[in-house]
Design a protein around this nucleic acid. Sequence first.
DNA 1: TTAAAATTGATAATAATTACTATTTTCAAT
DNA 2: ATTGAAAATAGTAATTATTATCAATTTTAA
Lengths: 129, 129
Amino acid sequence: MAEKTTIKRSRQRDAIVAFLKTRKDHPTADVVYQEIRTIIPNISLGTVYRNLAQLSERGDILRLPCDGKMDHFDADIRPHYHFICNRCGCVKDMELPYANNMDELAGNTFDGIITKHNLLFEGYCKECM
Amino acid sequence: MAEKTTIKRSRQRDAIVAFLKTRKDHPTADVVYQEIRTIIPNISLGTVYRNLAQLSERGDILRLPCDGKMDHFDADIRPHYHFICNRCGCVKDMELPYANNMDELAGNTFDGIITKHNLLFEGYCKECM
DNA sequence: TTAAAATTGATAATAATTACTATTTTCAAT
DNA sequence: ATTGAAAATAGTAATTATTATCAATTTTAA
C-alpha cells in the first residue's frame, strides 16, 4: 500500500533546483531545459519535465498553471499569487496578501472538500503598456 | 486596421450554443464534439474548436481554464468562480460572490494594467469524497 | 439571383508533454 | 572500498490536445 520510494539525488535535479533559485521570473520547462544545457549539455528534456513534476509534487517548488499557456515554475514556495502578461507572456509575483482562509470560506458554501485555490491575474505588464 | 468581419450564422455553431445552454456541467471541447455528433453526425472536431474559440472571444460563452487540464465551456456568461475535482475532473459552479473590485484592488500594488482575474478552487466533489 | 465572404469537413501539421527502455548513477549494507 | 538493488538518466518514440490548410459548401446582403 504505502508506496515507499527512496529518493536519490542526481546532478541533474540539483542543477534544476539551483537554477530556479537564481531566477525570479518563474521559467517554463523549456527555458529550464535550455539554461541547464549550458551546464549539463546532454541533459534530456524528459529529465527536466520529470524532475519539475517530481519536485512540485514533493512541494520543493511551485508549479504555476497559466490559463492554457505553458506552466511556469517557482522556487519560492511561499503561497502567493501571480500575474501573466497577455502580450509578452511574462509571469510576475503579485504583492497581494495570500488569503489563507479562502478555502475554508469557500468550503462553507460548497458540498465537497476544497484543498486549495489558484488565483491568476491577467493584463499587461509595465514593459508592454 | 479595423478588421471588420461579418459573422454569418451556421447550423453547427447554433447547435453548439444550444447544446451548451442545456448543460450545467461545463463540458470540454471533446464532449461537445461527441454530443453534437448525435445531431450533426459529420461535424468536424476542428469546427467545434473553431466555434468554441470564436464564441468565447465574442463573449457569448465562457472559456474556463482548469489548471493544465482541458478547458471547459460555460453558456452562463455571468462572471462566477469554479471548482475542479482532482479525482473525477468534474467542474462545478461556486456560489461565492464575484469580486468585481478585485482587479482594481490588485492593480493598486502592481506596476501594469490588470484586466481580469481567474480564481479556481480544487479539491474533491461530494461524489468523490 | 448572384457573388463575395464566412464557414465547413477532412486531413495534415504542430506543440507540449509523457512513455519506453537500455544504460548509468546513487547509496545503504556489507 | 565493494556490491547490488533501486532510482535516475539520455535518447527516442508515442501520445494528446489543439491549430492550420484548403477546396467545397453555405450564408446573406445587394
